[in-house]
Design a protein around this nucleic acid. Structure first.
Length: 418
RNA sequence: CGGGCUGUAGUAUAUCGGUUGUACAAGUGCUUUGGGAGCAUUUAGGCUGGGUUCGACUCCCAGCAGCCCGACCA
């Protein structure tokens, strides 16, 4: 993509009304646009990041047999009354239409997915079933904050698993722990993300959160670095420490962001809707459920928080909007010709490249933009780099490196094509 | 939801109870091109509603909006 055609522009100034690093950098870079507190639109660059995260998650969910659906955002009031959450959930958005009919804007989808399943599955032979979606969620946060980290409208992957027995559920639940680790590793924050014990709510002892360590986190966790196990502050007590075989002295306190969580739902939502199956003896049982969430918008903000430096964003290769940021400095014929050639060759080779072909923009500004936007590799074509034509003519530098080196087009292509 | 702070141009800021100043961005012309360029010129602003006052962007009240702290957060 040619940067001269990109309708978004970068900003030198940080927005006055955003303190959080992720919001500041994502807005300055033109990745997202704030509509109101806790509500953001995705712009071309931001959407590219989002799509990459989405695809990683989709691939991993499909691997464990997840069947993707897209459920409605508008949800019948009766379903929510059935589970007691119409009045029992403080952050539920309720909207009324002109006829006075009230509906919920989905903050989560147990109330929708369970009735759907009920319509199709009833034999033990139908199980297990795993259903997921990636969708906008709405929660009336009393205080949206921290940019993309806690919004009122946000995007989540929510998966629901349905089982005929506890053992089957637990096997799947354990598998999901591994799958989640894979997702966060692929998204580039695996080294900072820990499986964390948290309170389980009504039906189970614990739930499991995936917490990414960064100072911007709103949760406090205690990490045993030796075995990589953490627990949320909310469950830090002697009883839990004993059960997990952890000693208080070894725990280190960190601020962390909850990027994912998994829950044992037992029959909490299947029972109200009487989602049940008939076993091989003809007896009826209520279905057991688990649910598994990852906040995509939050994950995007977390990556920025955790990896950015003082110059801007540092995207991991796996989710960067473009693999290469190609900069053309100066406008003399030789530079123009060579830069166009590099751009075309990279495109032809299927390498995603953002080409800063803007005329009349100073070198300093292009460098600053490249740092802010955070593509993994910067490639410069300029009068200076061309002086070194014998050794290649293109200066490349990783976003995380201080110094670059001169390479030829072939060498550049070799990085991406094997 | 309790508390605090803040609302001036697209963005970031300044001054002022009496015609709102600057920088960046944007437009035009010329110069410039390895770390957010220069000169000239143009465009563009006081959140909403009340009150005080001869006069309010400025003071007061209310609303709305944003941010921060807390509470809340399957």
């Amino acid at each position: 993509m040619r940067q001269s055609k990109l309708f978004t522009k970068t900003r030198k100034e940080a927005p006055a009304d955003e303190v959080s690093k992720n919001a500041e950098l994502l807005i300055r870079g033109g990745f997202v646009h704030k509509e109101m507190s806790g509500v953001y639109s995705y712009l071309p660059l931001g959407l590219r990041v989002f799509k990459k995260i989405e695809n990683i998650i989709r691939e991993e969910m499909n691997k464990v047999g997840g069947q993707e659906v897209l459920m409605s955002s508008m949800q019948p009031k009766e379903n929510w009354e059935k589970t007691g959450r119409w009045t029992g959930m403080d952050d539920l958005y309720k909207v009324a239409d002109s006829s006075g009919r009230e509906v919920a804007l989905g903050p989560t989808h147990e109330e929708i997915v369970v009735p759907i399943l009920k319509n199709y599955v009833s034999s033990h032979k139908d199980f297990p079933v795993v259903v997921y979606q990636i969708q906008n969620k709405f929660r009336m946060e009393l205080r949206a904050k921290s940019g993309m980290l806690r919004g009122r409208e946000f995007i989540m992957k929510d998966m629901y698993s349905f089982h005929t027995g506890q053992e089957d559920f637990e096997k799947f639940y354990e598998k999901m722990k591994e799958v989640y680790k894979t997702v966060f590793t692929r998204a580039g924050i695996g080294h900072l993300t820990y499986l964390t014990f948290a309170s389980g709510g009504t039906f189970s002892k614990y739930s499991h959160e995936f917490q990414t360590i960064t100072p911007a986190g709103e949760d406090t966790i205690y990490l045993d670095e030796e075995n990589g196990v953490a627990l949320n502050k909310e469950v830090l007590n002697d009883e839990v420490l004993g059960q997990l075989n952890l000693s208080k002295e070894k725990l280190v306190e960190y601020k962390a962001i909850e990027v994912g969580n998994i829950f044992d739902l037992k029959t909490k939502y299947s029972a109200p809707f009487d989602l049940s199956f008939t076993d091989d003896k003809g007896e009826k049982h209520v279905v057991l459920m688990g649910c598994y969430g990852i906040g995509l918008s939050r994950l995007m903000g977390t990556v920025v928080e955790a990896l950015a430096d003082d110059k801007g964003i540092i995207w991991p290769e796996s989710i960067a909007p473009f693999a290469v940021h190609l900069l053309m400095l100066g406008e003399d014929e030789a530079v123009l010709k060579e830069a166009e050639k590099v751009y075309e060759s990279l495109n032809k080779a299927g390498v995603e490249v953002l080409f800063d072909d803007r005329a009349g923009v100073s070198a300093g500004e292009k460098f600053s933009d490249a740092d802010l936007l955070g593509m993994p590799l910067r490639a410069v074509v300029s009068a200076r780099s061309l002086k070194d034509l014998s050794s290649g003519g293109i200066e490349i530098k990783k976003r995380t490196e201080e110094k670059g080196k001169i390479v030829s087009l072939d060498e550049l292509l070799k990085i991406y094509v094997r």
